[in-house]
């Protein structure tokens, strides 16, 4: 199975590389190819469409505010399941694309135990074993995988309604559907923060696809080593020395 998925994924990458560009400048590394970026932004688009169309229906306080964006209550309700399906469909492709680097390792467990130091800013450089994704990213990824399963099952029950699945299954489904949405809502704040102002230099990995080498050895040292063959800490020290030399 793994090989079939990989072949499909590689073909998709090649096709999208012909459509878009991966422009990498001096001192940069290619992080996300066109296909990955395309999937990311499609997932993001459908996520926010589903989030906002759902939130109008979720909270009475937001009903009159949010539903007009989608053409009123009835249209919000009609569109929301399709937005959700779009989100799940593109995320499934992204999952096939990322399932390998998202595999959980012992180093990830150690990373999570060290979370306090990461959040407090005490740890400037990531531990040497942090690869393409760190444990925080992996937790979010697998949370979305689980969330998508919950969304899909409960969403279909809510879509078809009590006439098909019975009163209680609808009443329970909408609670689970909401909990899943609230978890992702909490997650999206952290995701947007860390990919923009929280860790500067991250955002253009999803626009142009490239990151600076300094970004790579700081946040994903094992990946840096794998791509460049150089030692990340040594590279960082050399850069520091260059920087402290007076300009001539």
């Amino acid at each position: 199975m793994g090989t079939a998925v990989e072949r499909f994924d590689e073909k998709a990458h090649q096709a999208f590389d012909r459509l878009g560009q991966n422009r990498v400048y001096e001192g940069e590394l290619l992080r996300h190819r066109v296909y990955t970026r395309f999937l990311h932004w499609m997932v993001a688009l459908f996520f926010f469409l589903a989030l906002f169309s759902g939130f109008g229906i979720y909270l009475p306080w937001l009903f009159r505010w949010v539903t007009p964006i989608f053409g009123g209550g009835p249209l919000s309700r009609a569109l929301h399941p399709w937005f959700g399906l779009g989100f799940v469909a593109f995320f499934v492709l992204q999952m096939l694309n990322w399932i390998k680097p998202m595999r959980w390792t012992a180093a990830d467990t150690r990373w999570l135990r060290n979370l306090r130091n990461v959040v407090s800013g005490a740890e400037k450089l990531e531990p040497p074993e942090t690869g393409f994704f760190n444990a925080g990213q992996k937790v979010q990824f697998w949370e979305i995988v689980a969330g998508c399963v919950v969304y899909l099952i409960t969403g279909i029950i809510l879509w078809a309604g009590a006439g098909t699945f019975g009163r209680m299954s609808v009443a329970v489904s909408y609670v689970l559907h909401d909990i899943s949405a609230l978890m992702m809502l909490g997650g999206i704040f952290i995701h947007i923060y860390l990919s923009t102002i929280g860790e500067p230099g991250t955002f253009h990995s999803m626009t142009r696809g490239a990151v600076s080498e300094a970004w790579a050895w700081t946040f994903h040292p094992a990946w840096y080593k794998q791509v460049t063959g150089r030692d990340p800490y040594q590279a960082c020290e050399e850069a520091r020395r260059r920087m402290s030399q007076p300009h001539s």
Binding site: V118, V119, S120, G121, K124, L125, I197, G198, E199, P200, G201, S212, A214, W215, W217, T218, F219, C236, A239, R240, M243
Partner: peptide, 10 residues
């Protein structure tokens, strides 16, 4: 806390 910047920082 402030952002985490790529090292070395200026």
């Amino acid at each position: 806390v402030g952002p985490r910047r790529p090292q070395p920082e200026p």
